[in-house]
Design a protein around this nucleic acid. Structure first.
Lengths: 290, 290
DNA sequence: CCGCATTCGAACACAACCGAACAACTTTCG
DNA sequence: CGAAAGTTGTTCGGTTGTGTTCGAATGCGG
């Protein structure tokens, strides 16, 4: 398992240092290579600093230092870099989440999958007492658990990376429910390979959830559309609706539409506020509890 | 500095401190990061105070200290309110948790119950890869889930008050396990009424867990000892060990001892260090993979 | 093979940051 | 009132991150 926290492992890196290393990884993931002088100029730091970063990152196996810069370490770091970037795509994800929330209004049983996009979706899900939400994600379950709807957490072994319950127990629990709609994320979604996921465990759970749902809504930001991960979950036709953003490649969307997938592009026009239970306008007065 | 909280006639010391730490957690939850100097200026306190807060919060696993500030810990976004509950907890509970942690060393399967004392216990539980921890509490599961041990969350309907999985699913899942020791909290614990709990759901789960455990350790601060709640879980003899603090009434403790309960009083002398998820002894040897 | 420009990394310098220790102050309790 | 405990600010020696210098190493074109 590629420890996503490994970047932070140096004794006590500052925020800027961590950010800079993230940037380096991103660049390397994008362009396969990076040059010390260029990047130093770009960030306004000395070359020595970049060199030190590279040495550190190589020590942890994220890349390989070369004469004049560094190159991608083939096997590793893609996931890491994408993870790092996933945190920054939040604008699009929020839009997708808001749009998707409008698609599940009035329903009574929904399945929520795993991933940051789904977490966002949960934030914007309109809570009603007669709504039951089932999810393997502890984060999502915690998020929903405090609100006015019935939340069911799947049990099972908790995965370290994303705090998700996986394994036979989760699958067995899933078998007790039937869903009007399953809202799931995706490691990749393409016409050729359908819905794909990075982890096998997650794929298994999603497969069962899809089988038990009458409708499937896939949430995937543009960078996921047309891409494929390793574990195949279901063909693209299994998804009734795909909610994505404007950055998704048009050709791929056309192909998906050809397969009968209803494609929804989330735009910024409907700037609905979040559905958080507590607004944070209470900045100055810290909670006067108990 | 004029104490802005003096108007409230603060009932116990450290009221401002607790509030300040809440603010820190909020900020970190919002922005993933915080800087000492900036925040100190913002609140009008010295940097040292902020540093002390951060150190404390890291010790309890809320965040991760960095050079110049702190960043969010992986147990991100459990609702801050829930995550921060433990902040208001007395040092008695922490002492109990620390003491109890020494009682479960070397075991391989433990059940962790519900409640803030148990959450504290989880923070100080020494993680080992071969240790399996089972719990119905989403908070505890999230806390443990990022650390180096196998965590199993019970599934089920999530209770709003304390983010606990309850109901038939939780009970059924429990039936798949056997525990060397069950560590549980208590709404009340007395010689007369035994182990009692406020909620029926919780009582049911604890009953099953006790039946499936070879040893039962009850954690209860002094105020709980001698008291009884509405729902009876088990007679006092079911508990092999009670860990409490010095404020527990001596007469009651004597009565419990008479029933064969091994009473342990947690004191401050064993100033055991914290059990943060990442060991920082790896200062000099960076290549030690987690 | 030899120069030559570029890059690398050890060493040093400096600023920012950290934490232990101490002092000043407040609150609690006898 | 006085002792004890808790909280915050300050000081100071040590640590960490970054920039700079400079000799050594490397790639490249004869």
């Amino acid at each position: 398992m590629s420890d996503p926290d490994a970047i932070h492992r140096s004794p006590r890196p500052g925020r800027v240092a961590v950010d800079r290393r993230h940037l380096i990884l991103e660049r390397v993931a994008d362009e396969q290579t990076i040059q010390v002088g260029e990047f130093a100029r770009e960030l306004g730091v000395s070359e020595m600093t970049i060199r030190r970063d590279i040495r550190l990152l190589e020590r942890d196996g994220f890349l390989r230092q070369t004469y004049g810069g560094a190159t991608a370490h083939l096997t590793r770091n893609l996931d890491v870099a994408f993870n790092a970037r996933a945190l920054q795509h939040s604008r699009e994800k929020r839009l997708i989440a808001i749009r998707a929330a409008t698609l599940v209004e009035g329903l009574s049983t929904v399945f929520l999958g795993v991933g940051t996009t789904i977490e966002q979706f949960a934030r914007y899900l309109h809570a009603r007492p007669e709504l039951t939400a089932v999810t393997p994600s502890l984060v999502t379950a915690s998020l929903l658990g405090t609100r006015a709807l019935r939340t069911v957490a799947l049990g099972g072994t908790v995965r370290r990376d994303d705090l998700t319950a996986v394994g036979p127990i989760a699958v067995a629990t899933l078998a007790r429910y039937r869903f009007e709609v399953a809202v799931i994320g995706a490691g990749g979604f393409s016409a050729r390979w359908g819905l794909t996921e990075i982890s096998d465990d997650e794929a298994e759970i999603q497969r069962v959830a899809i089988a038990r749902a009458e409708r499937v809504i896939v949430l995937a930001d543009g960078s996921k559309v047309g891409r494929a991960a390793t574990s195949v979950v279901a063909p693209a036709e299994a998804a009734h609706t795909l909610v994505t953003d404007a950055s998704a490649p048009a050709a791929e969307l056309a192909a998906l539409r050809g397969l009968g997938v209803n494609v929804v592009i989330a735009t910024a026009d409907v700037a609905t506020g979040p559905t958080t239970h507590e607004d944070k306008t209470s900045r100055g007065t810290p909670s006067t509890r108990s």
